[in-house]
Structures are given as structure tokens and as C-alpha cells.
Computed example of a mutant assay.
Amino acid sequence: MPRTISANVTLSLDGFAAGPGGDMSWLVETALHEQCASGFAGYCRGVDTVLLGRTNYEGFHGFWPAVADDPAADARSRALSRWLDAVEKVVVSRTLDEATWTNARVVRDLEATVATLRAGDGQSVAVLSSVSVIQALLAADLLDELRITRVPAILGEGLPFRADGLPRSSWALESLQTIPTGAVVSVLRRR
């Protein structure tokens, strides 16, 4: 059975994945809420390969490795840090020559890489918030599942999730969860 290609992204009500200048402060309350954090930890348990764009790879690599041994970090964040260190990380980039994080490698051809990953053994392959990678997968009709957390914030500007010229596709709601912060987590499966 082919591996599932899944994407996880958090969006504002007006469809932005980040605010101006990459601001992510608008999603912190929701991301740290026990219900949301627990759901994300469950999602990660089914993933053994992560696809990241260069920007997210550099941001994750600059933050997460130190969290594993940080006594001030909560147990779930330390576990996520260890998981991110151990999981296979495939970085899609035209400009990065090497990835120095444990179990990370750089690829140029997203479609060929996804075909190889899909045909291989293992658990799901996940894109963690890398909008450019998610858009490219949608454009190539290679995404099986979307996990969207919609946060009740209007940003007005920033990094938009939508991309013009995507092929038409149909999705079925697999699950829906509300978070007490007012956020809604939708898991959509490709029909």
C-alpha cells in the first residue's frame, strides 16, 4: 500500500499561514493549548518522514534541537524535539546545498522525491507548515490529506496559503475538532 502524503498547516481566518515579517504570535495560544498539542502529537506518531521547504527547515533547525534538553520546556515539547531530530527530514530547496540536521537531506525535484517516498516502506510522509511545498504538491495533484488548523485571527497581510492556478480537486471531511481557543482543526482526505 502506498504511503500517505499529508500536510499540516495553521491558517488565520483570512487565509494567511504567517503574518507580516513571518510573525507567528497569533497562533501560539492555540498551538500550546493541551487539546491542540495532544492532537498534533498523535498526528506525528503516524509520520516517519517530513518534507520541509528551506525556510521552515532553517527555522525548525534553529529552534527545535535545543528543546530536547531544555529543563524549562514541557515534556511534550521535549518529545517533539526528539522526534524531529530522529525523523527523516527531506528539504526541498533550489538554493540550499546541504542539510546539517540529523537524518536530513536536500532534494531539488519534489515530484520525483514524492514518487519514491510514496512507493517506499514506512509510515505517512508529512509536510509541516511549508506553504510552498504544500502548494507544489497540490499543483502536482500529489497530496492525499490536509490537516488545517484555522485560528480565529484576521491578519490582513502576510504569507497567503492560496495559490492561483491550482487544479480542481475534491476533498472529504474525515474529522473536525474544535479547540477552546476558538480554533477548528479539519482533517480532509482527497476523494
Rank of each mutant, 00 (worst) to 15 (best):
L52N: 11
L52D: 07
R54Q: 11
R54S: 03
R54E: 10
N56E: 15
Y57N: 02
Y57M: 03
G59C: 03
G59D: 12
F60G: 05
F60H: 04
H61R: 14
G62S: 05
G62M: 07
F63Y: 15
F63G: 03
F63C: 07
P65I: 01
P65Y: 00
P65T: 00
A66E: 15
V67E: 04
V67T: 08
A68V: 07
D69E: 12
D69R: 08
D69W: 04
D70T: 03
P71C: 02
P71A: 00
P71T: 01
P71I: 04
A72P: 06
A72H: 09
A72W: 03
A73L: 11
D74N: 10
A75E: 14
A75N: 04
A75R: 09
R76T: 14
R76S: 13
R76Q: 14
S77G: 11
S77Y: 13
S77D: 15
R78D: 10
A79L: 12
A79K: 13
A79S: 13
L80S: 14
L80A: 15
S81V: 11
S81N: 10
R82D: 14
W83H: 11
L84P: 06
L84M: 14
D85R: 15
D85S: 14
A86R: 15
A86K: 13
V87C: 07
V87T: 13
K89I: 02
V91K: 03
V92A: 05
S93F: 12
R94G: 08
R94N: 09
T95F: 08
L96F: 00
D97S: 10
T100C: 08
N103S: 05
A104R: 02
R105Q: 12
R105H: 05
V107Q: 06
V107A: 01
R108V: 10
R108P: 08
R108K: 14
R108N: 10
D109Y: 04
L110T: 01
E111A: 14
E111H: 11
T113D: 06
T113R: 01
V114E: 00
V114I: 00
V114R: 00
V114T: 00
A115F: 02
A115S: 11
A115V: 07
A115Q: 11
A115D: 14
T116M: 09
L117N: 01
R118L: 02
G120D: 12
G120V: 09
D121Y: 05
D121N: 12
Q123T: 02
S124M: 10
S124N: 15
A126S: 15
V127T: 07
L128Q: 13
S129F: 12
S129C: 12
S130G: 04
V131D: 07
S132F: 13
V133F: 04
V133M: 04
Q135V: 03
Q135F: 09
A136N: 10
L137N: 05
L138Y: 05
A139T: 02
A140F: 05
L142T: 04
L142Y: 01
D144M: 03
D144A: 02
L146G: 00
